[in-house]
Design a protein around this nucleic acid. Structure first.
Length: 244
DNA sequence: CGCCAGGTGGGAT
DNA sequence: ATCCCACATGGC
C-alpha cells in the first residue's frame, strides 16, 4: 500500500526540515538568509520587484539544469546591474547569452528571459505585483507548465503545486502514479491530497527535490531513506533480495 | 569517459 | 495526442 501525500509530506519534513525556498542569490549572507540565499523559516519573500523577477529568472534558467550553474548566471547578470525587465530588454541578446552561459542552453534561455521581460513591460503588461494568469504565462515562448507554476507559487505565492521530473520519479517509485502520468494528473494528486496553501506546496516541492538528490536518485540510494517503509520500489526490491 | 541536472518547443507520426 | 530530438554547461 502506498502512503498518502500527507504522510509523505510529514515524513520528508521531519527528515529534512524546512528548505527555505525559493533561494535568492542576491540575498546570500544577508539578514534572514543563509550563505546561498535560502531563507530561514518564513514565507514572506519576495519583498521587492527585483526579488520577484530574480525568482522568475531563476525559474527559467534552472530548466533541466543544476541550480549551482544557475547561481553563477544570476550572480553575473546581477553584477552587470541587470535585475529588472527594463534592464534585460536593453541589453544585446549576445551579451545576455554570454552572461548566462553557465546555465546551459544559453541562446534559448536568453530569448526566454527577453520574452518574459517584454511581457512585463509591454502594452498588456504583466503586473509586477499582482499575479499573472497561468494561461498568460503559458502563452509566452519558453514558459511551460512547470516554469509557469514555479513563477505562480514562488514569485506570487499562489497555491499551485509544481510538478517536476523529481516529483514524477518519486511518485512513480512510491507507487502513487504510473510512469508517464501527465502533468495535470500529478498536480491534482497533490492539490487533492495536501492542505491547499502556498506554504505547504512550497515546502513539499522543495522537500521532494532534496529527497530526490539524497535518496530517490536516478540510481536509487535507499539506505536511510525516510519513506522506504511506504515505497513500492523499495519493498519490491527488498523482497527480491536486492542490496543498496 | 558517461550520466545527470528543479524543461520546452518544434516537427514527425 | 504522443514520441523524438535539439538545446549546452558543469559536477561527479
Amino acid at each position: 500500500m502506498s502512503a498518502r501525500p500527507r504522510t509523505l509530506y510529514a515524513r520528508l519534513l521531519s527528515a529534512y526540515g524546512p528548505q527555505g525556498w525559493w533561494p535568492l542569490p542576491s540575498r546570500a549572507g544577508k539578514r534572514g538568509f543563509d550563505s546561498r540565499g535560502y531563507h530561514q523559516g518564513n514565507y514572506r519573500w519576495p519583498r521587492t520587484a527585483a526579488e520577484r523577477f530574480e525568482i522568475i529568472m531563476g525559474a527559467i534558467l534552472t530548466q533541466n539544469t543544476a541550480w549551482t550553474n544557475v547561481e553563477k548566471a544570476l550572480d553575473r547578470t546581477r553584477a552587470e546591474g541587470l535585475a529588472l525587465p527594463a534592464d534585460l530588454v536593453a541589453v544585446p541578446a549576445g551579451r545576455l547569452s554570454s552572461l548566462i552561459r553557465s546555465s546551459g542552453y544559453f541562446n534559448q534561455k536568453a530569448r526566454k528571459l527577453r520574452e518574459i521581460a517584454l511581457a512585463f513591460l509591454g502594452k498588456s503588461a504583466l503586473s509586477a505585483r499582482g499575479a499573472p494568469s497561468r494561461e498568460r504565462l503559458l502563452g509566452l515562448w519558453g514558459i511551460g507548465p512547470e516554469t509557469a507554476d514555479s513563477i505562480l507559487l514562488y514569485a506570487f505565492r499562489k497555491p499551485v503545486f509544481v510538478v517536476d521530473a523529481y516529483t514524477r520519479r518519486f511518485l512513480t517509485r512510491v507507487g502513487l502514479i504510473e510512469a508517464g502520468a501527465g502533468y495535470d494528473r500529478v498536480q491534482e494528486l497533490f492539490h487533492r491530497g495536501l492542505p491547499a496553501d502556498h506554504e505547504t506546496y512550497n515546502e513539499m516541492h522543495a522537500l521532494i527535490v532534496e529527497h530526490a538528490k539524497r535518496h530517490c536518485r536516478a540510481k536509487p540510494a535507499c539506505s536511510g531513506c525516510p519513506v522506504s517503509r511506504s515505497c513500492r520500489y523499495f519493498r519490491t526490491s527488498h523482497l527480491n533480495g536486492r542490496r543498496f
